[in-house]
Amino acid sequence: MATKQKLLTDISLKGLEIAPSQIRGAVRIVPLLRRQVRGDFRLVRRDYHEDIAVVSLAGRITVPEMQYYSYIPHGLVLSWSDDGSPIAAFGGQMFKPDGKRLDCGCASVRLMHRMAKREAKNQLRLLPLHLAMEGFLSLFFSGPDIAWSEYSKYALAHGLGSRYEMSFSGRYIAGLEDALRVFEIHPRQVGVLVFVAETLASAFVVPTPEDYRALHTSLLEDFYGELIYEYSMMFDKPFPMDLSVDDAKIHSLADLRNAIAKMRTDWAAFQGFMAEGLLQSPLNSQRVYTMGPFVLQRFITSLHPKEENHIGEAIIREDGELEYLKTYRLSAAQTRRVYLLSQLHFYNWNIDATATALGNTREEFVTRLETAGFGYLLNQQVRDAARKKRKK
Rank of each mutant, 00 (worst) to 15 (best):
P20F: 12
R390A: 15
H158A: 14
H130W: 13
V382F: 05
Q123L: 11
L322R: 02
S167G: 12
R264A: 08
E198C: 04
I87F: 01
D145G: 13
Y376N: 03
G159S: 11
I315M: 15
E230W: 01
G312Y: 03
R24D: 11
E134P: 00
L330R: 00
Y48T: 03
A88R: 06
E165H: 02
A58W: 01
E221G: 02
F141S: 00
L16R: 06
A332Q: 14
Y328L: 01
R298I: 00
K392H: 13
E363W: 09
Y347V: 03
Y231F: 04
Y212H: 06
T290Q: 11
I29D: 05
Y172A: 09
A53I: 02
F346L: 14
Q22P: 09
E65R: 13
K6W: 04
S167F: 15
A174I: 09
K153N: 14
R213Q: 13
L296R: 01
I23C: 10
D266S: 08
L243N: 07
S285T: 06
E210F: 02
A353M: 15
L43K: 04
E17S: 14
I250A: 03
V288K: 09
F270W: 07
V288P: 02
V382A: 07
A275F: 03
V63M: 04
A261D: 10
S285Q: 05
Q280D: 12
I250T: 03
E276N: 10
S302K: 10
D98F: 14
T290F: 04
T208C: 03
E323I: 14
M112N: 03
R264Q: 12
I185M: 13
E165P: 01
Y231I: 00
C104Q: 11
I146A: 07
A248T: 10
E307D: 14
K153R: 13
R28Q: 12
R24F: 14
D384K: 12
L303C: 10
S138P: 00
E165A: 07
D10N: 14
I311M: 09
L227T: 11
R387S: 14
L124P: 08
F223K: 02
F299K: 00
Q381H: 07
E323V: 14
H310P: 04
M291Q: 05
E313W: 00
K14P: 03
Y151D: 05
I87H: 00
F270G: 02
R383L: 15
Q271S: 08
S56C: 06
R171V: 10
H304S: 08
T335L: 09
S244N: 07
F223A: 03
L330F: 02
P31F: 12
Q334C: 08
Y347S: 06
D266K: 07
G91M: 07
D255H: 13
N350G: 10
M233E: 05
V194P: 03
R383T: 11
N122P: 01
A26C: 10
R46Q: 14
D242W: 08
W80I: 02
R125G: 00
A26S: 15
Y231S: 01
T354Y: 11
L33N: 13
A157M: 13
F140C: 01
R368L: 13
R125N: 02
S281V: 05
F346N: 06
M112R: 13
A120Y: 06
Y172I: 03
K306M: 12
Y151R: 04
H310M: 15
P97A: 07
D10Q: 15
S85F: 04
F183H: 09
Q5T: 03
D352C: 08
